[in-house]
Design a binder for these strands. Structure first.
Lengths: 220, 220
DNA sequence: ATTGCCAAAATGGTAGCCAATTTCTTCGAT
DNA sequence: ATCGAAGAAATTGGCTACCATTTTGGCAAT
């Protein structure tokens, strides 16, 4: 009896507490700078105080939230400057990884990438934004994993995630349909460049892709 | 009375527990793969169980130690492959940062760097290895901070540190005096390249500097 | 020598307490 | 009425203790 109850209660949390909060953070379900009060998290995620503390510490270590002593934790809120630095650093890592990937990627993996891009194309009009965001993430993760350097890939992933919390609509230029379409076309082009083993071209494409959002900013 | 006692007891730990353990890790005072049992740490650092746990979690987040469920924490022990990946990634970031630094660094900061190098030269024969290691760290930190991108600098610092735990003698090619001397000469050369604003040359120097240790390996 | 079993050791999840700090509220003074 | 200060409420966070789970290590039996 008690076991069944416990299972039922936990049913919605087949994932760990951290990953549930993380998912909400990366999906932009919190506002930048929003306070994550322990009591609230405790209630909203149906967890106990200790787990909440551990989860928040974990997320803090990954810089998705920040910690202010005696105040608590709040969603990261990057300054203009920090955002610049983030994109500069991502450009460095991602262009380098792209060049490596162009050399090392296998034909099978290119096919996998293409499958993701196709799925993106199909779901672009119907699916929810979160779904598209997930596909986008899978595309880039797989691409950078193909660099053959998984530490590099992890580093890139971590940096990408740091830009997401509090960024509405997935965080890039994805506020507009045009942005999403542009993103998709970039991906198609990347596949072609991978097939052509054009590392430099790919790097350039990545750079443009990364800085795409600038075109869609309210006030540049 | 009690206050004075407390202060005295804490006197040796004016730094936090994490930074004390961290210092020992980075100085190579633990062996790679060595277990950090909670009880031992508790005793050796004169701390309580809770603080130890928090400290170990923190160090785990920075990948200086790893955590195996129900076994505990142990000093990171990089595989050959992981070490390759680490250096490849560092090369990418550090050469990029060096190029930026060559553009953006001020004359004052170059002078600061030179001061560190001079101090290194003076202390090379007399000072302890830990002292030299600290100076080396300050040199590289300041250099990469001069890229004007502090996120980039932090990232580089974190990656550098990940290579240190368990690496005897500071972790690089610093097992031999020749390695230390080589390192110093590299630094001198870097200063010259900075003065000449030769970003590409500097990047190349960094690359060689980073991969210097290969020459001094027991079995390549 | 190998296997199985039991005891000892260690981890790690949990509850709960209370001091320090911040935030909110209320009250009083100008 | 506004501002400021004192006090109350809320919140964080450091800490102790407990014990279930798991692993480890040793000992005995085959």
């Amino acid at each position: 009896m008690a076991n069944i109850m416990a299972t039922k209660i936990d049913s919605e949390s087949d994932q760990t507490l951290v990953s549930r909060i993380e998912a909400d953070l990366l999906a932009g379900h919190f506002r930048p700078g929003e306070w994550l009060k322990q009591a609230d998290v405790e209630a909203n995620y149906n967890a106990n105080r200790f787990d909440v503390r551990m989860a928040l510490l974990d997320l803090k270590a990954r810089q998705l939230i920040e910690h202010i002593p005696n105040r608590g934790f709040r969603v990261i809120n990057l300054s203009e400057r920090e955002r610049e630095e983030l994109f500069e650093t991502r450009s460095i890592l991602e262009t380098a990884a792209a060049k490596l990937a162009a050399e090392r990627i296998s034909d099978e993996t290119i096919a996998e990438l293409e499958a993701i891009v196709r799925q993106f194309e199909v779901q672009m009009e119907t699916a929810e934004l979160d779904e598209l965001r997930a596909l986008n993430g899978r595309f880039h993760d797989l691409l950078y994993q193909s660099s053959g350097n998984s530490l590099l890939a992890e580093e890139i992933k971590a940096l990408r995630q740091r830009g997401l919390p509090g960024a509405r609509g997935g965080g890039l230029a994805w506020r507009t349909m045009a942005g999403i379409l542009q993103s998709h076309e970039d991906h198609v082009r990347m596949i072609a460049l991978l097939r052509a083993r054009d590392g430099d071209g790919l790097a350039e494409a990545i750079c443009g892709h990364l800085n795409m959002w600038r075109k869609y900013l309210p006030k540049p």
